[in-house]
Structure formats: structure tokens, C-alpha cells
Nucleic acid binder design. Structure first.
Length: 557
DNA sequence: GCCCGATCACCCCA
DNA sequence: CTGGGGTGATCGGG
């Protein structure tokens, strides 16, 4: 049974709930980038230069710049995915989003500088070169060496401020302390004959750093282990240049080599990634202290979920059984039977696939499972849909893609964090458990997810879509649940949730999907805002908030 | 001088 | 294996 009707808003429960956020036909008015950009900048306090900015810490400014960039990228990628021809786009959402951010002043640290960059911390990650440009970490969009001219004893001399080590030049000895870096130039392209590198530009600058003892920022570029098509950049702090020499490369041409040493006493950065790789190679347990279980899910999840405690003697969550799905006693009835698609190659944006139409004509995710949608409800394909399990519209239902671990925090019980870097917008996990009817709260309301709570995700504010919550259901994960139940509250969260609905026969099944608000480096705790019920102040359930954020509201429940 | 943006190479996947 | 999509350890123009 297939319906391509997209105008009948009375069709189903889910559609009524989603009215106003989905079901719009794609039209030219959706391509009003200017108003979208203006709204975005206003939402993130980036439209008025300097005055508003000074209210925030450097870290918050940098965060907001990346979030605006990400949301713009998402908008362009979504349009390209759907109606690239109509918008007359040249593709390259990364460059277009970056150009707009730069033009509109949604950037930070625009003056080049030697040493640390305010608001950028060691271990911070980036998924596009342009992101590092916008926050002033590394200015050129392609080149590996960033340098500036400075006055040194009366002379203007070039000095390198940062380098990107992307593993393209066969660097060795990269163990997190020592880095061998090759100079630039000499026709690295394979179509042209190689020539000698010259002591100019970046190469000359690095030579000056060596002689003057000036430190340089180092960024490691790596393959993203989940999505091998993309790269992750990790900021690893300051290095000194110990020595330089000339080697003979291919075609017997001169290549400059620089040996860099990481400045001691800095927080752990790239070295952590090496450790995590070892944990993966050794299946978790052996090389690491505090591991209680290599897999809390006992094989029910697609990826193991490590359980660790480096804080006290507690051996794990009590009275708890792992389940990776959401148990429904009674789903929500649809007034009409569900629509199902027949997309044998997976659902595509811009087609009349009914599942795409329910998402406003757009595909809600990229091929990599990164959120494209700005809506406050995601329609995923259901059990009767003919599309394969690998369909782009089955992201939240296809299980864990990220290596998560449950760990004991110092003061907030158990918590959740990731071994893998998480890109902004990426699906993280579902909130599994048992859908509870009747009473809103358990006697012990820990591990209850209340989807009736008023919730204003930063993304929906920024997109101009007013929050369309609540959805009337409550999930208890007190006795049965998945990793989602371990995520703690924060007033400055790095994760938010969206309702996800799947239709099957005459029913709608709502789920809660967790997505990254920003890029999240490995081992940083995952947190979301627990929200607040509309009409009550929490009473005895109110708890002191220990999130530590400068924006902390003091309590939550 | 330095800020910007287009090039086609290169990588991965279908 | 080949083509297409997507991004980049330039480089030259304004």
C-alpha cells in the first residue's frame, strides 16, 4: 500500500503532530539562504560584532562559530542533495558555508598569532579545513603550513604559526611526542615532474622557528574510522622544532624535513587516540585499568559497550538488564494505514518516495548518518517499507555505529562517553526501555525519559522552527534500557534529542534519538538537557546540578 | 603585501 | 575496473 499524497494533514497522528514542521513541498522559498543566514547569526549572537561577543568566553564563541558553520553546511548539503539544479549551486557546501561565515563575521581570532588560540583547546576536533580557518587555528584552506611576518630585531621575517600533518608525505615517528614533517612545494602532484623544494614561504618560516625557538601549533589529520571518506583533524598543542635537514625524495629531488617535539606539560591530546586504538586492538579489557566488563550489552548491541570504573569499588549498575530496543505495549494509532515506500535502492531526496515526502521532501540524513534535517520530528522508514536495511532513512533504528562506554563519574553516578570522535549532527544512540502508560513518574524517577517535557534544542532555535514538543509518552529505563539511560544532564549539553517516528500498518511508533549538537572529541562525557515539565517546579525531585557549565541553572530534575 | 577562491588530484565507494 | 561524489599538506590573481 503506497500513498504519495502529501496534502492530507488529517492522515495520521504523526502528521498532525508534525504539522508546520514537515510536509512542506520543496519550493524556491525554501532556498532563501539570506534570511536563513540572518536568523542563524541572530540565534547565535553573532550578528553584532564585538559587543555581544565579549559577554561570552572564548570557548563559547569558538563553539558557536563552528555550530553556525555546521548548520550552514547542513543547509547547503541538504539543498544540493535535493534540488541542486534549481538552486543553481556549484556544490561545495563546505566552501560556500565558510565563505558566508567569513563575510558575515561569524569567525573568531581573525588575526594570526603565534602560540595558543583563545577558545581552542588541545584535543578539540574539526571535520573540515574551513572550520579551522574560521576559528583562527589554521588559516589556509588547503596548504599545510600557516605563517605570518613578524618583526624580529628590526627585520620582517616569516614565522610558522601552525601546521597540518595529514600523513601524505610519509612522515615517520609519529607517536604523539615526535613528528617528522615535510616541507611544502616541489610539485607533489603526480601529473607533474617533481622538482626541488625551495627555502621559501612555509619552509623558510619553519626554518626561522627552528633558529629562534618559536613554537608552532600542530594539527593531526586522520581518517575518520567510522566514515573513511572523511577526515578528522585533532589539535595537539604546541611543538618546538628540533632540527631540519634535506632528504632526496622521488626523482632525486630535495625535500625539506623538520623534526618537531611536543612541548611537555600540555594536556593529553593526540596520544589519547593512540591509546584508544590499542584498546580496540586488544578488545578492550587487558591494557587498561578499571575495566569491569568489555561489553555491558553482552553482545546484543552491534558494537561492544565497555564498562569502566576508575573512581571507586562499585561493580556496575544494580538491578539492570540491558536491552537495545524500545518496548511498546500499545503504539499510537494512525487514522489511516501507514504509507510504505518501495525504494529498492534506498530512499532518495527529491523523489516522490512517501517517506521522503513525510520529511518535507528532504532526506533527513546524509549517507554517513549525519543529520541534515532542521525539522523537530524525523520520519524514518518502517517495517513494511521495501527499502533495504542500509537505507539512509533507517539511521536511528540500525544500532550503534559509535564505540560508547559507560563509566563512573566522580560525583554524578554513571555516565556515558565515546571512544570515537563524533561529528556534529551524528546519530549517537536511541533511548531504549519500556514505554510507560498512566503515571508520569516512577517512585524513583531516575532513568525515566519524559517526552512530555518542554524542550528547546539549540538546533531548532537556530533553524527558526519553534519546538513542537511535547509528545505524550514516557520511557522507563529503570530496569531495562540501553546506553541512553546513562547519559547525565548538563545545562551546556553536547547532545540533544529528537523524536523519531516509524509507521507500521495502522500504528505509529515514536522513538527518541540522540544526536550530537557539536563535534565531540573522544572520551568527553556525553550530556543532554533533561528539560523541564511545563507546569511544575520539580518539588522534591529537584536535584542540585553539578554540570559545571558557566551557564548552569543550578538545578534540574 | 595579504586575502580570497577556483583547480583538478586523489580517495573511496557504488 | 571505472565513474561519480566530495574534499584538499596550492597557488595565482585582485
Amino acid at each position: 500500500m503506497e500513498s504519495t499524497s502529501d496534502t492530507d494533514d488529517e492522515r495520521s497522528v504523526s502528521r498532525k503532530k508534525a504539522k508546520g514542521t514537515t510536509g512542506k513541498a520543496v519550493s524556491n522559498s525554501d532556498i532563501d539562504i539570506d534570511s536563513f543566514v540572518t536568523h542563524l547569526l541572530n540565534s547565535f549572537n553573532l550578528s553584532e560584532v564585538d559587543t555581544l561577543r565579549q559577554m561570552d568566553s572564548d570557548k563559547e564563541l569558538v563553539d558557536r562559530v563552528i555550530m553556525v558553520y555546521t548548520l550552514l553546511w547542513r543547509k547547503f548539503a541538504q539543498l544540493d542533495d535535493t534540488i541542486g539544479v534549481i538552486s543553481g549551486s556549484k556544490k561545495r557546501p563546505d566552501l560556500r558555508a565558510g565563505a558566508i561565515c567569513r563575510k558575515k563575521g561569524a569567525c573568531a581570532n581573525t588575526k594570526r598569532r603565534v602560540g595558543a588560540v583563545p577558545g581552542v583547546e588541545i584535543g578539540d576536533i574539526f571535520f573540515f579545513r574551513f572550520e579551522m580557518c574560521l576559528v583562527g587555528l589554521h588559516t589556509p584552506t588547503i596548504a599545510g603550513i600557516d605563517f605570518m611576518n613578524v618583526q624580529i630585531s628590526g627585520n620582517e621575517e616569516p614565522v610558522a604559526v601552525s601546521i597540518v600533518s595529514a600523513g601524505l608525505y610519509e612522515d615517520q615517528g609519529d607517536d604523539g611526542e615526535v613528528l617528522i614533517y615535510s616541507g611544502q612545494g616541489g610539485a607533489q602532484r603526480k601529473d607533474k615532474p617533481q622538482t626541488d623544494q625551495e627555502l621559501v614561504r612555509g619552509n623558510l618560516a619553519l626554518e626561522k622557528n627552528l633558529h629562534k625557538g618559536i613554537k608552532v601549533r600542530v594539527i593531526h589529520g586522520l581518517k575518520d574510522c567510522q566514515h573513511t571518506t572523511t577526515k578528522v583533524y585533532v589539535y595537539d598543542g604546541l611543538y618546538t622544532i628540533q632540527e631540519s635537514w634535506i632528504e632526496k625524495g622521488k626523482s632525486d629531488c630535495n625535500v625539506f624535513k623538520y623534526k618537531l617535539l611536543r612541548v611537555p606539560g600540555q594536556p593529553e591530546g593526540f596520544k589519547l587516540w593512540k591509546s584508544i586504538q590499542k584498546w580496540k586492538d586488544n578488545r578492550g579489557a587487558i591494557t587498561r585499568d578499571g575495566v569491569i566488563l568489555p561489553d555491558l550489552s553482552s553482545g546484543t548491541e552491534k558494537l561492544p559497550v565497555c564498562l569502566v570504573n576508575n573512581v571507586d569499588d562499585e561493580k556496575g549498575p544494580a538491578n539492570f538488564t540491558y536491552r537495545c530496543d524500545l518496548k511498546y505495549k500499545t503504539p499510537f494509532p494512525l487514522t489511516n494505514s501507514s504509507t510504505t515506500c518501495t525504494c529498492s535502492n534506498g530512499c532518495q531526496a527529491g523523489t516522490n518516495c512517501p517517506c521522503i515526502q513525510k520529511n518535507g521532501g528532504y532526506a533527513p540524513y546524509t549517507h554517513l548518518g549525519v543529520l541534515l534535517s532542521h525539522n523537530t520530528l524525523i520520519h524514518e522508514c518502517g517495517n513494511s517499507c521495501r527499502c533495504p536495511d542500509t537505507c539512509r532513512n533507517r539511521i536511528s533504528q540500525s544500532g550503534l555505529k559509535i564505540r560508547l562506554e559507560v563509566f563512573k563519574t566522580r560525583d554524578r553516578g554513571w555516565g556515558l562517553r565515546s571512544w570515537d570522535p563524533i561529528r556534529s549532527g551524528a546519530f549517537i544512540c536511541e533511548y531504549a526501555g519500556v514505554v510507560v502508560e498512566g503515571k508520569r513518574f516512577d517512585s524513583d524517577d531516575n532513568y525515566v525519559f519524559d517526552a512530555t517535557r518542554v524542550y528547546e534544542p539549540i538546533e531548532s532555535v537556530a533553524s527558526g522552527e519553534p519546538p513542537k514538543f511535547p509528545f505524550p509518552f514516557v520511557i522507563s529505563a529503570k530496569n531495562e534500557g540501553n546506553v541512553g539511560r546513562f547519559m547525565n544532564h548538563s545545562c551546556s549539553p553536547n547532545v540533544y534529542w529528537l523524536p523519531v517516528v516509524c509507521e507500521f500498518q495502522h500504528d505509529a511508533y515514536f522513538h527518541v534519538g540522540f544526536y550530537a549538537i557539536k563535534h565531540i572529541p573522544p572520551m568527553q562525557e556525553l550530556t543532554f538537557n533533561y528539560g523541564r515539565p511545563r507546569d511544575d517546579k520539580g518539588g522534591a525531585r529537584r536535584k542540585k546540578c553539578l554540570c559545571g557549565s558557566p551557564r548552569c541553572k543550578g538545578s534540574f530534575y
